[in-house]
Computed example of a mutant assay.
Amino acid sequence: MTDFSARRTLMVDTQVRPSDVTKFPIIDAMLSVKREDFVPAALREAAYMGENLALGGGRVVLEPRTLAKMLDALDIGNDELVLDIGAAIGYSAAVIAHMAQAVVALEEDEDMAHEAMDALMSAGMDNVITQAGPLHAGAAEHGPYDVIVIEGGVSHVPVAILDQLKDGGRMACVFMDGALGEVRIGYKLDGRVSWRRAFNAGAPVLAGFEKHDAFTL
């Protein structure tokens, strides 16, 4: 029988801590949340690998290092509302729920959204709302949000998403340029979001977050 508890500790000790992630709430959450319960059954044995887990259709569960460093840069407080875009089966939402006041987990694949709801309920995460809907549209009815996290690559962030971030809020995205990517943290002030580079990472670009080339005559 697989000792997932030992794998979880090993993940934190070999992937998270060496990446300069030291904030206790993040370490505690990643030691507590059973990642194997938030991936498809066929991927349970691979749940703690140090790479993105492919879900099919260009979707992934971000590698633990990337998620941990995103959360470290965002420094989520226990009085904050977070929108988790592309939540898949709910792992990221479960981790974020340990540090936020409440999380809205947005997933456009209805089957994964239902699985996320079940997994989060089984894990006792009663401060997470799971919502099915297009990722690029966000979840305006529950916003605005103190923090927005996008669980996948982007070439651009739709205005609809930027509009759902509170003034003074921040967001994290993996910006992709071909095969290369970097996580940037966006800070909203006076209605405008300014981006700062955080670290290198990669993920497939989500549908609806592609860069639209301008038409030329």
Rank of each mutant, 00 (worst) to 15 (best):
P64V: 11
P64G: 11
P64R: 01
P64E: 01
R65N: 13
T66E: 03
T66Y: 05
T66M: 13
L67N: 02
A68H: 06
K69F: 02
K69S: 13
K69N: 05
K69A: 07
K69C: 10
M70S: 12
M70R: 04
L71Y: 13
L71Q: 12
A73V: 12
D75S: 14
D75K: 14
D75E: 15
I76E: 07
G77C: 12
G77T: 15
N78H: 14
D79F: 15
E80L: 03
E80T: 11
E80I: 04
E80V: 09
V82D: 07
V82R: 01
L83Y: 11
L83E: 02
L83F: 00
L83T: 04
D84C: 13
D84Q: 05
I85Q: 09
G86A: 08
A87R: 13
A88W: 01
I89W: 00
I89T: 09
I89F: 05
G90H: 04
G90L: 06
G90V: 06
Y91M: 08
S92D: 05
S92Q: 14
S92K: 00
S92F: 03
A93K: 03
A93V: 04
A93I: 07
A93Q: 00
A94V: 06
A94N: 03
A94F: 09
A94I: 12
V95L: 07
V95A: 08
V95Y: 08
I96M: 11
A97P: 08
A97E: 02
A97I: 15
H98L: 00
H98I: 02
M99I: 10
A100V: 10
A100D: 04
A100S: 07
Q101C: 00
Q101S: 06
Q101T: 09
Q101Y: 03
A102K: 14
V103R: 02
V103K: 02
V104W: 01
V104E: 07
A105T: 06
A105N: 04
L106S: 07
L106Y: 05
L106P: 13
E107D: 14
E107Q: 11
E107G: 11
E107T: 06
E108R: 14
D109W: 05
D109P: 01
E110T: 10
D111A: 11
A113M: 06
A113K: 05
A113L: 01
E115F: 13
A116V: 01
A116Q: 09
A116F: 07
M117I: 01
M117N: 13
L120G: 09
L120Q: 03
M121N: 07
M121A: 12
S122D: 15
S122I: 07
S122K: 09
A123G: 15
M125G: 01
M125S: 15
N127Y: 09
V128K: 03
I129Y: 03
Q131M: 05
Q131A: 08
Q131Y: 01
A132R: 06
G133Q: 02
P134L: 07
P134C: 00
P134F: 06
P134S: 13
L135R: 14
H136C: 11
H136S: 15
A137V: 08
A137G: 08
A137F: 05
G138W: 02
G138N: 08
A139E: 12
A140C: 00
A140G: 14
A140Q: 02
A140S: 06
A140R: 11
H142N: 09
H142D: 06
H142F: 11
H142M: 00
H142A: 09
H142E: 03
H142G: 01
G143C: 12
G143T: 01
